[in-house]
Amino acid sequence: MNNKKEAAVPDPNKGMTIIVKTITRLTVGLILLYGIYILSHGHVSPGGGFAGGVIVALSFIHIMLAFGKDVALKKLSMRAASFFESLGALLFLLIAVIGFTGGSFFLNFFADKGEPFKLFSAGIIPLCNIAISLKVGAGLFSIFVILVMLKFTVDGKKGN
């Protein structure tokens, strides 16, 4: 993405070929932006937190497939992934519990729901979408990382 990170790649032979790396460099930002669009517009257009979170996770998996696991883990480490997953789950639960201030679980507690078909509308639904997408994206990314690491140790070699 930016040149400093590219210069920090330890081994140019790691990952896939130069063609895949170049295309990845061009497209991965667009994939991430599309995921953010899908999750933030979940209440006005098709999509939602789950699909957006999976697309965001796929953009990091894209980096990992093209550049190897070191570069991807430098962008989003395992510790950060588990933090974001827990944050998403707790945020979703927090939104649910705040509804008790109005009397019930998961109450849509905003008095002004906003104008329909606008981005800032629908009360708690965009917030829930963001929480779910954090949870889903970080969770699926960490599942992928864990499976890749298991494969490496089973095969008995580090890297590639």
Binding site: G47, A122, I125, C128
Partner: peptide
């Protein structure tokens, strides 16, 4: 709910407990 996408309205407001 104020959400124009009714799927989001159902899964995150009416049936948020299932979600």
């Amino acid at each position: 709910t104020g959400a124009s996408n009714l799927v989001a309205a159902v899964i995150l407001d009416f049936r948020a407990y299932d979600t």
